[in-house]
Simulated assay, not measured.
Amino acid sequence: MSKAILVLEDGRTFYGDAYGAVGETFGEAVFTTGMTGYQETLTDPSYHRQVVVQTAPMIGNTGVNDEDDESDKIWVAGYVVRDPARRPSNWRSTGDLGERLGAEGVVGISGVDTRALTRHLRSRGAMRVGVSSVDLDPTSLLEKVRNSPQMLGADLSAEVSTPDKYTVSAAGEHRYTVAALDLGIKRNVARRLAVRGVTTHIFPASSSIEDLLAVGPDAVFFSPGPGDPATADGPVALAREVMRIRKPLFGICFGSQILGRALGFGTYKLGYGHRGINQPVFDRTTGKVEVTSHNHGFAVDAPLNTVIDTEFGGVEVSHVCLNDNVVEGLRGLDVPAFTVQYHPEAAAGPHDADYLFDRFVELVERSGKPSVELVEKKG
């Protein structure tokens, strides 16, 4: 087994063994607290250009399968684990995680004290990192790390977006049509809409308002995705156009940040971000606390306890993270638009926030378009 090293931007160095592909990789070091769902994490486009540290010590026990990918490939820039499974054991498994990483060229490292690494990132913040199993000189690798691109100012959504429009049909009876802007969409978004009778047309990130309206959508969706929302001027302008024509609009994660900017708010980079499947969020609309899935390193800068007057009318913060009071959702009071910063489409869970897709459908219904069922009854 080849040896490997991990060198952080501030010089902190960890030693271990190569896991996945032998080679060298660079990105932003982040940690995720999820104890399940590593296959979904790896294939989530929002992790593009990030080296993901798993805080759960044992990874790979259930192997990988052909059903749980959230996109067509593994997107993480690198992977850091403490104790990889020697062999997978699960009735759904079709392969070994380490072999899958190697086949897709994903450079990783195992045998690392991920607890110490996570504590370091919590105290110092997310930072650039290099993982190598070919250059084992910490000084040499550190120089490369410091010459690698930062996440702040990175415009990445176009790199993960679909090149061509495609459609996911409603499961069963078709009720509504949604135009979804792919900024790094996960497959489960369209699945959650499909079971509610929604046909979803997924568009490239560079699409225009004319492109979206060409499919006759009842509503528009802005997807999650990677990078710094301050760079995404095109999607921000598109969100403003959608709100001007009062088309119902729902944004998740990166899409939430885009809508935040479209409403006139700023965004900022969090110290170490929210990543994992156990984040508590307070829904001010229902008064309930949800356990939610997160993957974001940026947030919307909006006042928590007041209605904000914007070009599009009143807006309020609808959801708040109970760990640190970060804005986790916005709600338009005069335009049919709302957002959440986390992932109601979470796979492998939790599913506390799945109701938000019902809220989206209800928003469409309240916006004046009768359902197909009602039209048929009247006809």
Rank of each mutant, 00 (worst) to 15 (best):
S256W: 04
M127P: 08
R92K: 07
V7M: 02
P163Q: 05
V112P: 13
I109N: 13
F250D: 05
R366P: 00
K73S: 04
K378C: 08
T292W: 03
V131A: 11
T33L: 13
V281R: 14
A302Q: 03
A171S: 12
D352G: 04
R331Q: 13
Y272I: 05
R49E: 12
R92L: 06
R49H: 11
S318C: 04
L142F: 07
F250P: 05
F282R: 15
L42F: 00
P370Q: 06
V195N: 09
R128M: 09
E365A: 14
E9N: 09
P280N: 07
A85S: 10
T118Y: 08
P88S: 01
E104H: 00
R115Y: 13
I109M: 09
L8A: 10
W91D: 07
V307T: 15
L333T: 01
S223R: 12
D228T: 06
D113R: 08
R366L: 08
G105P: 10
V80H: 03
V361R: 14
G271H: 15
P229E: 09
P226Q: 12
T139W: 12
G255L: 09
D283R: 12
P248W: 02
G102F: 11
G27A: 04
I252N: 10
R86C: 00
G197R: 05
E9T: 02
P350E: 01
S371K: 11
D83Q: 09
P204C: 04
V112M: 12
D96L: 01
A180M: 15
A170P: 06
